[in-house]
Design a protein around this nucleic acid. Sequence first.
RNA 1: GGGCAAUUAGCUCAGCUGGUUAGAGCGCUGCAUUCACAUUGCAGAGGUCACAGGUUCGAGUCCUGUAUUGCCCACCA
Length: 1076
Amino acid sequence: MEIPKTYSPKDFEDDIYKDWEAQELFNPDKIKPRRKEHFSIVLPPPNVTGTLHLGHASMLAIEDLFVRYKRMQGFDTAWIPGTDHAAIATQNVVEKKLWKEEGKTRHDLGRERFLERVEAYVEDSKNIIHNQIRKMGASLDWSREAYTLDETRARAVRKVFKMMYDDGLIYRGYRIVNWCPRCKTTLADDEVDYKEQSAKLYTFKYDKNFPFAIATTRPETKLGDAAVAVNPNDERYQEYIGQIFDVNFCGVDLKIKIIADDAVESEFGTGALGVTPAHSAVDFDMAQKNNLEIIKVIDEDAKMTDKAGKFAGMSVEEAREKISAELEKNGLLEKTEELINNLSVCYRCKSAIEPLTSDQWFINVNKKFKVRGSEMKKSAGKEASLKELSLSVVKDKNINIIPERFEKTYFHWMENLRDWCISRQLWFGHQIPVWYCEDCAEYVVTELSATELFVMRHGEAKNNVLDQLNSDIENQINGLTEKGKEQVEAVFEKLKNEKIGAIYCSDFRRTKETAAIINEKLNLPIIEDPRLREVGVGEFEGKHDAELAAFRQNNFAQWQNDNPHGIESFESLKTRVFACLEEIAEKFPGQKVLIITHGDVCRIVQGFRKNIADEKLFKMDYPLTGEYLHLKFAPIKCKCGSQNLKQDEDTLDTWFSAGLWTFSTLLEKDFETFDKKENPLLKRFHPTTVLETGYDILFFWVARMILMTTYATGEVPFENVYLHGLIRDKEGDKMSKSKPETAIDPLDAGRKYGFDAVRLSLLIGNTAGNDIRLYDEKIEGYRNFVNKLWNISRFILMEQGGRDKQASEISELSKTLADRWIISRFNKLIREVTKLLDEYNFSSAGELLREFTWNDFADWYLEISKVEQNKEEMLKYIFKNLLKLWHPFVPFVTETIWKQMNPKEKSLMISEWPEFAEKAIDENSEKEFESVKELIIKIRNVRSENKVQPAKKIRISIISDNENLIKEQRENITALSRAEVLTFTRQEQEKFIKDFVPMGEIYFYMTDLIDPEKEKERIEKEKNNLENYISGMEKKLSNDEFVNNAPRPVVEGERQKLAEAREKLEKILEQLGALK
RNA sequence: GGGCAAUUAGCUCAGCUGGUUAGAGCGCUGCAUUCACAUUGCAGAGGUCACAGGUUCGAGUCCUGUAUUGCCCACCA
């Protein structure tokens, strides 16, 4: 067999992955589990905007390791992939792209068109990241891929929203929120970052009549002040507490109440704080407590509002300048000073956050509700708030966080959690499932999705080309032209991802043909409805379109309710079309329906359920051939009976849908409830076993999942949380594009060193909760190791023959001391690695494996096997099982080698995890072999010290207490140390003593060595070490307190060690004597 | 301001509930090239475990304090 000397990962990796996928080995339905217990992980969904970075790579390496390990152990194993729509991040990316490439804003396109752009972008992006994930070797079940914004997940989102609303946990309120004026949306508290900046602190009085000064960095907000707060213990202001002052601040009249609040620090500024309820979270709380007026002086564009008097319309910066100038001019400004403070900025775009009051949807985290699930009730009681429930499941260890210290962080965050603002003023995301009635003040919350109608005109027909009106059902001879057919195909291209549930068309030939073309791909029932026919044209039949158009344009009033020249009246057309639409809406609530009809009908449709005057409606444009209309309707009625409802424009915080991820990914496509009876996958895999993610999103995501899932399902989302650290560069800094020389792209690194090496570099040395440094030399080292594995396999494959042995046949395999040694060591390795992996300590497991593979197996056993010969079966037994242990770490190279060794087997990844065999443990043989190793190393050492040419064989004599062992190992010692062993008895040796140099138990033939003095030095050194050691031990053992207090085995152990050391010393002294 | 972590060989890090003469990889030094592998082999040098106290028969490991570094949270009106 021709096997290259160097392993070339790129020649194998892609094919190996394709083979796994083709065999469907990632799908738990396609492989037989050998145990009942499940092991499941849902992939933390990467943002659709992203490309694979090291954070993902490390996440994938760790999770794939867990999953492959458990799969080999026979667990029913699922690893579910998906992507996150990442509302704000994705919208920002597409907006930037749109601006750069076309100079347009999202408003230029409008919601509908903009979202189409986003979806197109998302599609591309998803494919890129999925292929990158495959590169890493991740054994994800792609057949169950989810997306936070797909229909199943969307239904789960609406359902939970409604559940929470019905439980009174979701409410709409006018509250202070974090507003990003750039993104034009609210942000959750933890989506706000802080940036240090230097600011000016202004100390001033509102006006001349106000008794004392206040200090602020933002004078412009003071236009909205309703109070001044002081510390209740501050003596300076006691007399004013409770008083109300009418002031005129820069032309704006304000009523300022003096209130006392502990939050105020007397030492800061003047100890008096101007309270601006509308623009500071702390002040808003004070306003609630003290019933203060909320005056909003800054709007959503970060401009001053009408309430700001003459400053209205100015930017906040401009207003600040003007106000400070005016204060100074009027002698109200006492001083300005520089200070460093934290500016709150948007975590996505880094612009300054403007805290302001606004009408938003919130989740109440303190309100009690009826807890679901018996385990949850046990933890939190029958009734609990979201906060209490989320705290209790971690306190009671229903969820186990690794490393444990993050529990504290979690508790602290959860205990201080405030109501969660979930509405976002973005377009991309889950639209809030609330419908406002246009005819009364009510609104309706529904889990049903909007009924959506896609209304299109037929493609170009022959009568269009001839410019002949043709609406006589008896005379439908004209079908579509070639161009018409192409137009239809073009529309279908745009619609194909919409998951249309039904197709309606008129009974005209041109619409039926259009429907048939589209339905070639969709295979839906086509419903023909004559109510969707083109308007009846009466006497104009067969005439030019323009003639009819001109007539109707000029005689609308006449035609509105009547039928001059036999033209069907507008009223009649409207009535039949609306009746048809009403029926469709009722028949397909929450679904998408495609309607293929004619120009005038398209026009009319736009007025469905809307109060649009007939004439205005008649004059509306309708979509050109090749385009379509998209209309959304409420799937339910308002209490008042009106169906004229409009959905809330806002979308939900992306973490709302992400919070459902562990169970929403396991729901059936057409689920009605979250019940396990209805959702077999949920029953099989939920709660998931481990959630593996970075500690940096503990709050964003992990906490939210706990909160949302315990609420919605009455079950924890996961039993364990494994938090990994961040990947840093060699200096310990965050990798960033601004430092390209240290930033590593996992894909580049994979191409260069192989993805197995990249995985190892991310796994070994990586411990829970700790950051890890990565740099090229490290990956290179693991590349070298992978190559070592490869070359071990080359060696073993060259040793032909032998058959595979099982663990039960170990005794047959063990013929020599080296055999017993390696097999004992190896079985300990199996035991240790298994234990460490169960403890999530994969780094130590990897280190042990590396040590065994390189040091024990390659450096010693393989060398011995060249001497002892005929070890094919043993080598195969160890190596094949070793490949299994390695597989979760380095799946590609192990599978590649496995396939070469077992061409007939399906795959290493579904082979059985090695079992530890107790009977293989042989402590005595291990000890004996270690002493042989020691001898060999000593001989090599002496050779090296004396610069003996490697090719030169030296002669030695060994005087050992274990003469049999030396005799038996004579060949091994000779081969591995290039020394000829001449065994002497003590008496025999006496005769040669003058020619030999003693070194421990070994006597070297003097003329073979260059410098016996050197050896003397060495022995002296060893003697000193030993003497020091012995005196320390003696002291210890003569200490009664130690002997009495320390546990017996410890004392015994120490005695043993002392005895051994004394023996050793004795020999050394003897040899030293001989040297002199 | 509150909290968490880290500090062990030149570098990157192990060292579990206190009981070895403190380990690994890389790097370094010397030697070796047809025999699985130079992406290699063999041998070696290198550490008062940040500092100061304390607990204990015994401390890298536990406690207190100090210093340095990093991170998280709160907040700076």
